[in-house]
């Protein structure tokens, strides 16, 4: 327990100092993206990893949050940071609607329903032009020219999310979540209100994903439906971040986010410009190959399968 706190403190200090050491905008940008994915991956993990509701639609919350911030700033001229404060709450509202519809279904049907719901949200954003500007998207000018403020906002968000997930999972709620995942009928027969706790898990998950979405709007200053409601690049990416790091572990998704963004960008920059240009064009291919590799050989992620990795390494020596 104590040792864990020391380690957390060290990690926190490293991350606070990091952007002061790394002055390149490009690498700061990567760090910001990675921190954002820490939040989203962790959120997905709470709902899917711990509560067992495999969502293929986290882009719904991400997009809702992003559009909340964007529309407030673009149409009403408020600060986009107000939107960031509200983005989480609108995402929770969206989450309750989705929960109302999709929680009637279980297992693979739930997953299917979330894919469909995500696609519907994307199409609404495309077609409701008076509100969302449709395919044109929302364009803002960033508040800050430096990456530094964004880095610290992202860091604060990531830290807050990890803290909340940790607290929740140590509380009674966490126990209920896991029992619903293990056997919903048994949990209900023990008097756990499954519908309530599933919605609760969804709400917390949606809140942080939505806030991350609103942050994305502020930071990237441009969104369109294809970007923020994307099935592969938001919903699936959220799953992959969690899986690669380790599902149903607190630190797994955080580690997964660093790995995913790190590897993706390494290939996107063609291994720091050392490899020929075609490597950077095939970074999406590498992403896909990595998914296959991880599911085949590291199904419980790097954190979850650590003993297995260690065994392999030790043996090969």
């Amino acid at each position: 327990m104590k040792r864990n706190q020391v380690i957390s403190a060290i990690i926190a200090v490293v991350f606070i100092i990091l952007p002061l050491v790394v002055t390149s905008d490009y690498y700061r940008h990567l760090a910001i993206l990675a921190l954002m994915w820490v939040v989203i991956g962790g959120s997905w993990n709470l709902l899917a990893g711990y509560t067992g509701q495999i969502s293929f639609g986290h882009a719904i919350f991400f997009g809702t949050g992003a559009y909340t911030a964007g529309i407030l700033a673009d149409k009403l001229g408020t600060s986009a940071w107000l939107g960031m404060a509200l983005g989480g709450f609108t995402a929770v509202l969206a989450g309750l609607v989705i929960g109302f519809i999709c929680f009637r279904l279980r297992g693979p049907y739930f997953a299917l329903a979330t894919i469909a719901a995500g696609e519907i949200c994307r199409l609404i954003a495309v077609n409701w032009e008076s509100l969302t500007n449709g395919m044109v998207g929302v364009l803002l000018i960033q508040t800050f020219r430096s990456k530094l403020p964004y880095y610290y906002v992202a860091l604060a968000l990531a830290a807050a999310s990890l803290l909340v997930f940790n607290l929740v999972m140590k509380s009674k709620w966490g126990f209920y979540f896991v029992s619903i995942r293990e056997d919903q009928d048994a949990a209900e027969s023990l008097g756990i209100n499954a519908a309530l706790y599933k919605n609760l898990s969804l709400a917390i998950s949606a809140f942080f994903t939505g806030t991350a979405g609103a942050f994305y709007m502020n930071y990237m200053a441009f969104i369109d439906p294809e970007v923020v409601f994307s099935l592969p690049y938001i919903s699936i990416m959220a799953i992959l971040v969690a899986i690669i790091g380790g599902v149903a572990t607190i630190w797994g998704p955080a580690v997964g986010a660093l790995i995913m963004v790190g590897i993706q960008e390494t290939f996107r920059s063609a291994i720091f410009g050392l490899a020929p240009k075609w490597v950077s064009q095939s970074h999406a291919l590498v992403f896909g190959l990595m998914v296959i590799f991880v599911i085949l050989y590291l199904a419980n992620g790097v954190v979850g399968d650590w003993p297995k990795i260690k065994r392999l390494v030790v043996r090969s020596r």
């Binding site: 990893g49 699936i236 899986i243 599902v247 999406a284 291919l285 992403f287 896909g288 998914v291 296959i292």
Partner: peptide, 25 residues
């Protein structure tokens, strides 16, 4: 053995990405 029962579904997602990107390549 995994906690996520849908990992075959995720595998198909990985396959989808790989096929698309090979075609693009």
């Amino acid at each position: 053995e995994t906690i996520i029962p849908q990992n075959q579904v995720l595998m198909t997602v990985g396959i989808a990405i790989v096929l698309t990107e090979i075609a693009r390549f």
